[in-house]
Each structure stands twice: as C-alpha cells, then as structure tokens.
Design a binder for these strands. Structure first.
Lengths: 216, 216, 216, 216
DNA sequence: AATGAATGAGTCTTCATTCAT
DNA sequence: CATGAATGAAGACTCATTCAT
C-alpha cells in the first residue's frame, strides 16, 4: 500500500463529488483500505487535500518557471508558459481541478499557504505579459483581463481534454498557443524553429485511466 | 419574508463554501429564519439548489437567445452573445458560479434536467460559431476548442469582476468581444454602429453587495 | 422531557462510571431520549457536566454561607457548617461526588471557573477555623491539616450514606459534628439549645432511588 | 526499559486524567515506547491497571498488617495503623489515588478481586477499632462511622501532601494519629516511648518528582 | 407561515488491539 | 524486545428532515 494510491483515490473522488461531499469511508474503500488506515497517511481529511494541492501547485510552478527559462524573449516565454499550463492541466486534469476548486474547503491557515502558491504561479503569467507589453511584443487593451482570460481558458482544458480523445495533447497545446498569440497580437513567426513544448510532469496524485465523458 | 431572500442566502453560502459544505441551519440563519421554515420554500436542500440553477440557466438561455435575434449576421450574433454571456456572468456572478460548480451535487434525475439546460445554452455558441465558420466570417483551426475557450474565458469573469471595481461592465464586455474576435479572426469593422450590448437580467437569487476581494 | 431528567441520568452514569467512560448514546438511553436530542439541552457533553457541577457547587456555597449566618460564634458556625456539609453530601451524594471527582475531566477554561467555586466553598471552612483558633475556641496543632481532614471526612459520606440505611441523616450530622468538635477540642456545651441543623437543598441533578450497596 | 517505568507512566496519567481518559498511545509516549510494545508488559490496558492496583493494595495490606504486629494493645496498634496508612498514602500518593479511584474502571471479574483486597485492608481498621472499643480503650458513638471518617481523612492526604512541602511526613503522621486519638478518645499517654512509625514502602509504580500544586 | 423539539443516519476521528516483520 | 501498519468498533457530534404546536 502506498500513499500515491491513497492520493489518487482522493483526487478521483474529490474531483467527481467535491471534497465536502466525499466521506472518508468512501475514500478508504476507493483506496482499498480501512478508513482508519487513512490516518497513517494523513493526519486528517484536510491534510490529505493539502498534500495533493501543494504537490500539484509546486509542480505547476516548477513547470512554468522552467518554461520561462528557455528564452529571454517574452514571445517565446509566452508560448512555453501557455503550452506548459495546458500540458500540465491536460496531463493532470483531476488533480489540477481539485487544486483549483477545493481551495475553499481549506481552513484559514491552509488557505493562506495554498493561495500563496497559486499567486506565485499566476505571477509567472503576469511577469511575461508585463514584459511583453513593455517591449511592444504584445498588444491588448487591458493586460490584467488578458491574463485572466488566458489562464481561465487553459485551465478549462481540465474539463474536457482526455488522452484518448479526438485531439493529441500537442495539437491542443499548439492551438492554445495560437489563441493566446491572437489575443495578444503576438507574432507567431518568432516561434519558428523553436521547440517551446516540453513534456509535462505527471503528479503522483493523478489517477490513471479514468472513465470520462467524451468530448462531442 | 420572501423566497428571493432565501435563495440569495443560499447562493451566497453555496458560492462561498459549496453546496455540500453548507448546512441547512446555516442557510436558515443567513436568511433570518428557522431552518424548519426553509421547508415551506423548498421541499429539500437539493430542491433549493435546483430552483436557483433552473432560474439561472433559463435566464442565461433567454438572454443568449434574444442576443442571437438582433441580427442574422454571425459576426454580430457573436458579439451580442459574448457580451450577453459576460454581462450575465458579471451581473450575477454568484448565481452563475453556483449553477456551474454545483451540477455535481445534484441527484441523477436533476442532473439530467439541468445538464439539458446547460447543453441548450452551450449550443447557442456552437450554432453561431458553426454558421460563422461556414460562411467564412470566422477562422480557427478547431471550432470546438475555440468555443470551449471562449465560454470558459467568459465564465471566468465571475471569479473577479465586481461592480465597484476598476472596470465598468461595458468595458469588460467590449474587451471580451474584442478577444473573441481576435481568437476567431472576425472583423470588428462589421460591428460599427451596431449596439450589440443589452442590459443583462438580474436573477432573483443573486445576493447584493457582496464583500469581494478586489482585482489588483 | 425536561432538563432535570437529563442531568439526573448524567449524574447517575458519571458517578458510577466516570465522565470519560460514559458515552452520549448511553446518556441518551438513560434519559430516555435520542443521543442527538441531548444537544438541545447542552451544547456538549462537557457542558452538561459543567451545568451539573456549577449548580451543585453554588448550592453548596449558598448552604454553607447561610450556615455561617446563624451565629457569630465560631463554635456554632462550625457545627452549622459541618452539618450543612454532611447534610448536603448525604442528600446529594451522586451529584456531590461528580462535582468532586470530575474536575479533571474539564477543559482548562472550565477548570478555572469550577475550581474558583470549589475554592470559595473551602474558604468558608478556612474562615471559621481561623476565627475559632484566633479567639481560642478551637485548638489544634495544624489548622490547615485539621481543615483538610474535616472536609475529607464529610465528603466521604457520599461514599456510604443512603437514606434508607441504618442511620438517619440527623444522626450522621450530629456524629460528624461531634467528631469535628473532638478534633478541634471545641466545647460541645456551647451548642446546647442551638438548632444548628437546617434541611439541606436537593439539587435538580440528583437522581432519586438509586440502587446502592448497603453499609455493612 | 523495565516494567516499572511503564507502570509509573501509567500511574501518572491515570491519576491526572483517569483510566478511561488515557489512551494507550499516550501511555506509550509517556513511557518512551511504542504503544504496541506495551502489550509485552501487560496483556491489556486494564491488566496494566490491575497490576498497579494489586501491587499497591498488597503493599498497603502488608504495611498495615505489620503495623498491627508491633503490639497487642489496640491503642498502640491504632497509632501504628494510622501512621502506616498516612505514610503509605503520602509516599505513594498517585498510586494510592489510582487504586482508590479507578476501581470502577475494572471489569466485573477484576472488580471482585480488587475489592476483596480493599476489604481486607479496611478490615484491619475494623479489627483494631472493634477490639479497642471492646476493651474500653476507645470511645465513640458509632464505630463504623468513626472508621470510615478515619480512613477517608487519611486517604485525603494523597490530595495535598508533597515531600518538599511545608510539613515533614513524620509531622503529618503524628498529627493524624493525634486526630484519630481525639476522635476515639484514646489516651495518648499510652504511646509514650513507643516508636509506632515505620518507614513506608515505595511501590514500583509510584512516579517520582511530580510537579504538584503547593499546599497553601 | 413559522418553529422548537426530536431523531436515525451520517460525519470525522480515535480507540484498544493484533500481527508480520 | 520492539514497531509500523492495519482494522472494526466506538467516540462525540452534526446532518437533513419531520411534525405537533
């Protein structure tokens, strides 16, 4: 029995039903253990959620931060960051969704800590956009709104992408990069010859082979 | 005492904490009535949620459908639909959020009914995009993905827009229309002289004067 | 259904098994109600105990304080106080025992409050002894030790006295007064013609007709 | 690691919080071992208590019985027995308290065995008093009540005595003997030249150097 | 229309205990 | 001798819901 299995069961149920609607007996059953045994892996139901969220957010930050390091050009950074975001979200859709939706389930002290990580992640986007705007690579009427739209768009991938679906991950990533470039009126030509797509990490808490409603 | 007050209390708490994490005693307290009295307004906690969701989704459909009626031109329809979507979401952020997030809290029979309404609403976007693509007004590599991105973007407005914030609603609407046009490579010139923005309805369940974290 | 019945059931079980060893389902069953209904009468199991203890200690203080008021003579006050103490303990043996034994079951904040009441009660004895020693009515090698022995002795009555036993309450009271006078070398002659025995109060939490092991 | 340490930890916690309120993980932690290891020293939590109680009660009986052997005179026996009781209680206050309070925590079969020991111990007092009354050395209105008062008084020492306090143990013993003599109208002159105080045994389960609230 | 009292089933968590290592 | 992992039962408490008033 290992902790990843417990976390995967948790993420699966939290994503489907929500944290509050998931009982720990249910969690135990899904992980194949007695509910009391859960308390060997996490001190409480909330701590189980925190573990999952922290791991997820830290992986997103790492992935995003390393995307920014592939170039000093905001345009290339944008492409890398968006494809990192979309790639991560599509690869770990359930974990990503839990990390986003269930912030509200946390007690105040954990909210603070997790919100900090979320803010750190969002600031990656803010930095790139701000620099791109400053140097004239991007153009938009409102940088903040563009950033929010961009992120929301990408996050939405978790709602419908699935590995065995109509679209390959790389296609989705390219398409989202294309949309992002359009929104910001960035020049796609600058991307030519640049390999801005890196394989996204798979977090331990992401369940595999989930039954999932198909994208029409 | 009227039902709107009860629904507003419900939406406020459901939006903040989620349906499952909100107790019926808590709902009563927030509405200023005894929890038992809630059962005069709704047969069960779930029915209270269904009332709210149904009203919200029907209002969104009405609003979207009437937006499509202002013209036969896909380009103008798109602008009207996007601004309707953004306007509704910004005007009824909590109700809209509950209608989106809490679908999973419903029992199967209610899920079917509500998902039907949600699908009807989404099909408005699908129709416009499909026609616009067909007649060559829009251009995108993947219509489905564009539609999903567009909707998600607009829905995200509920997370940050607030009436007394930095931006007026009309500005937000224009900006989102602009982004949508960019994504679809639609011609903004076709909008000249067209008043595609209509005042969004306020649903009865939307609470007023919510304390809300400001958009930085 | 009234709260006294709940408190009586609680006292009966707390006295027999201790607070920690008594479950709330057990409490409910003993009171003839569902365990959840207990929470209409007390916010928690501990609060139920606090209610009982506070009422008991306040009644002891009142009883003791009014005993001191029957005379200004320390000798007479002593007789009245001892007979009050013994009378109260014998009349409310279970409640008194719970009030004494279960102090340790309280959370810190309640411990403070209850210990204050207990200290107030004990200080009644300290006052009388101190004055009696000062004016030469009493004689002992160590006033503190005498006070502790006196109180402990009287409290012990809760362990064995029962109304339908070999001894009438008044006999027990007279005998304990006699022992107290011996310990303090006080003159019993000063009591002649003085009615220092008052009927003890019955607290609401004291169960009636308890099965009880007879005094051999 | 030896069993005494385990018993001392148990006594410390049982005395502070009671048997029922003490968990075995807590016991393990206090003894510096894993909770599972406890089962090498005692077959169950209750057996651990029984060990402690039995050892304590047997030591009390031995101590009391040998006190009676120092003379055939009831008066001298009384002094020896009271000083043995007080000495034992003051020397092993926590163990003595556990042995007294936690009888109720035992299962029926153990209750019988332990109550037998307790009764044996109490009968030492009963014997001495009965003989002393018969031969006219003592005088009291009710022998049973006197015995109960005497024992309760002495047992109460566990609540307040501490080695580094205001009073030396011998002082306390002498004082309690004096009080006992007063209660029974026994002649102290008969004690002259008799060394009725023997060093009390220290039972293995008694914890050392306990933080203890001072006697005012 | 409104509510206080009541409850069975449920919540999360801890319990004492066992056992393979 | 020692322990980490495991568990069924029980812990206190809250739940949504009903109903007489």
């Amino acid at each position: 029995m290992n902790i990843a299995k417990v976390q995967q069961a948790a993420v699966l149920l939290f994503a489907r039903q929500g944290f509050a609607a998931t009982g720990i007996r249910e969690l135990g059953a899904a992980a194949g253990i007695n509910s009391a045994t859960l308390y060997h892996y996490a001190g409480s139901k909330e701590e189980l959620l925190v573990q999952v969220m922290r791991t997820c957010l830290e992986a997103m930050i790492n992935s995003g931060a390393s995307a920014l390091r592939i170039s000093a050009e905001p345009t290339i950074q944008l492409a890398a960051l968006v494809s990192s975001h979309v790639g991560f979200t599509a690869t770990n859709p359930l974990t990503a969704r839990v990390a986003e939706y269930e912030m509200r389930a946390l007690s105040p002290v954990n909210t603070t800590a997790m919100q900090k990580l979320r803010d750190d992640y969002e600031s990656l986007f803010a930095q790139v956009l701000e620099r791109g705007m400053r140097v004239g690579d991007f153009s938009t009427e409102d940088t903040t709104m563009a950033r929010l739209a961009l992120m929301e768009m990408g996050t939405g991938v978790a709602h419908w992408y699935r590995p065995d679906g109509r679209l390959a991950l790389a296609e989705v990533q390219h398409n989202f990069v294309a949309m992002a470039f359009k929104i910001l009126s960035a020049k796609r030509s600058l991307l030519e010859g640049i390999d801005y797509i890196h394989p996204p990490p798979v977090v331990a808490s992401e369940p595999i082979s989930i039954p999932w409603p198909t994208l029409a």
